[in-house]
């Protein structure tokens, strides 16, 4: 885990996350979110989670962000149609968000800074994670497929204009 790579990635993650919240145009928000997820993929690579890095890239930046972009273009959103809160509510939101950050940082202050564990060759690869996934977590994995079918049916029914009885 190289410190310089971590610092660069962390700066990129946090600044792009801030730009997601504060950019005025929703399309820019989505594009900054893509950059944020790319840098999180970098974090996964630094943490030796190679399988997760690939899945994050494919599922998040590939599928979910394209879905967001499609919906924003379908709804024809832009800077002019963007609703805004009054200034005092925005200030309150920024204040409460920063207070939450201070509280979280203060409560995590005393956590012991342990060195990284010694890991095996297959740690975090498709082989290693797959072994754990298909032995210890086989039932949740199968239940997840049921969840996906439910989500598929649900989104098709919801997105249809009129359901014929």
């Amino acid at each position: 885990m190289s410190p310089i790579a971590f610092l660069i990635l962390a700066t990129l993650t946090i600044s792009s996350a801030l730009l997601v919240v504060f950019s005025r145009n929703p399309i820019y928000s989505v594009l900054w979110l893509v950059i944020c997820f790319f840098s999180i993929t970098g974090h996964y690579i630094l943490l030796d989670a190679h399988f997760l890095a690939a899945v994050n890239l494919i599922v998040y930046t590939g599928a979910i962000m394209v879905l967001f972009l499609f919906v924003i273009m379908l709804l024809n959103l832009n800077k002019e149609t963007e609703p805004h809160k009054p200034v005092y509510l925005k200030a309150a939101a920024v204040l409460s968000g920063s207070l939450l950050m201070i509280i979280l940082a203060a409560s995590l202050q005393g956590y012991a800074n342990q060195p990284p564990a010694i890991i095996s060759e297959s740690f975090g690869t498709a082989k290693g994670v797959g072994k754990v996934l298909f032995t210890d977590f086989l039932l949740p994995f199968e239940v997840a497929s049921v969840l996906f079918i439910t989500a598929m049916v649900g989104s098709v029914i919801l997105a249809k204009k009129h359901v014929n009885d």
């Binding site: 943490l47 899945v55 890991i119 975090g124 290693g128 994670v129 754990v132 969840l147």
Partner: peptide
């Protein structure tokens, strides 16, 4: 990574699965 246990990565995988389903229905 710091505890050398791959179960955490399986949890992340499941969170991604649920997030994908949630985004499809939510949108």
């Amino acid at each position: 990574r710091f505890n050398g246990d791959q179960s955490g990565q399986v949890f992340v995988f499941f969170i991604m699965v649920v997030a994908a389903a949630e985004v499809a229905v939510g949108l």
